Simulated assay, not measured.
Amino acid sequence: MPSQGVSVSLDPLALRYLDHVRFEKRLAERTCTLYRLDLERLSAMAAEASVALTAVQPIHIRRWVAQMHSAGRSGRGIALILSGWRGFYTWLGREGRVSSNPVQGVRAPKVAKPLPKALGVDEAVQLAEHEEAQDAPWLEARDAAMVELLYGCGLRVGELTGLDVVPSDTALQQGRGWVDLQAGEVQVQGKGGKRRTVPMGSQALAALERWLAVRSQVTGMLNAPVPGASSASLALFAGRHGTRLTAQSIWQRLKRRSLLAGLATPVHPHMLRHSFASHVLQSSGDLRAVQELLGHANITTTQVYTRLDFQHLAKAYDAAHPRAKRKG
């Protein structure tokens, strides 16, 4: 099997195809180089099997996919190679050199979907209870409230940045959410314009009240709607200049806070959403409720957290059950 550093003599048809993608389709040079590597790999495998490129059958392609997979190539890498081969045989079909595309029905091995990263309960509490003495009091109050809403309510970072202090006609028109302190709820505008109501826990509510007590003093922003108020002036979370915080700013603040809190892994906003879902599911076992809290349209999206929950149970079993430990 050729490596990237070895040049393989290519069939004239393969060379014509490379000219086609370079000059007629005008693909980028890097893409053309990758196509050539794919065709070198195909040519080497066909030569080893003593079969002409125009005589390759689906059984050959499947065998070569299995060889690449057993050699350690990832499913994603194989899928990219198959895409290159599929394009070559599509072109051969248009040129009248093959009657069918041998790659058409072949798929790469499925890539194992990685589990979402979630903090342990102790780590999440450690982050939420951390107080940063180096920051100004108002900045600490703001960041603490952001952490409590991300972890305590399972919000997406875009939902967090879109929160206003109060409801307004502008918020409704522009698809933003708001907090309802009296009801202890967050009104969220989620994906696909879907609105949902998320309850706030006592810690999130207390943190939010501390932030709102200093918010208007620091940023000069409004805590009540007025006619013609701008989106920025009603933003729940704002920076020093009174502008609505961006998702990037929240990522940076959360990463900094997690490192200062002594966590081994830098934390990002979606990790707190995963942690929220995993911890609620561990405690309640109510998958449907977690689906509603997260705003998932399909429960299959939520079911990934059952795998996280099983990992938690498996670790507890391995640590505690006398028959789980191997002798010696």
Rank of each mutant, 00 (worst) to 15 (best):
V98S: 07
H241V: 08
E140R: 15
R156K: 10
A71H: 10
K325N: 13
S9H: 00
S202T: 08
S216D: 14
L39F: 10
A66T: 15
D318H: 15
R307H: 15
T170F: 04
S168P: 09
E292K: 13
R73K: 09
A44I: 03
A316D: 02
R253W: 00
L294S: 06
A232K: 04
E24I: 12
E292R: 14
R288F: 08
R76L: 14
V65T: 11
D11L: 02
N101S: 07
T306P: 09
E148F: 02
G295W: 01
G177F: 02
V188E: 00
T161P: 06
H69L: 07
A28I: 01
T31M: 12
H69C: 04
K325E: 15
L181Y: 06
G152N: 09
T246N: 10
A52N: 07
S258V: 11
S202Y: 00
S249L: 09
Y35I: 04
I59V: 14
D318P: 05
C32S: 10
R97P: 03
P114G: 13
S202M: 04
G242F: 01
Q67V: 15
E95I: 12
T265W: 03
R215I: 11
L80V: 06
E132L: 11
I61E: 00
H268Q: 13
R156I: 10
L212W: 00
A52S: 13
H270C: 11
A108I: 01
V51L: 07
S7N: 06
H241A: 12
L181S: 03
R210L: 03
A52L: 09
Q217N: 14
I59R: 13
V8Q: 00
L181E: 05
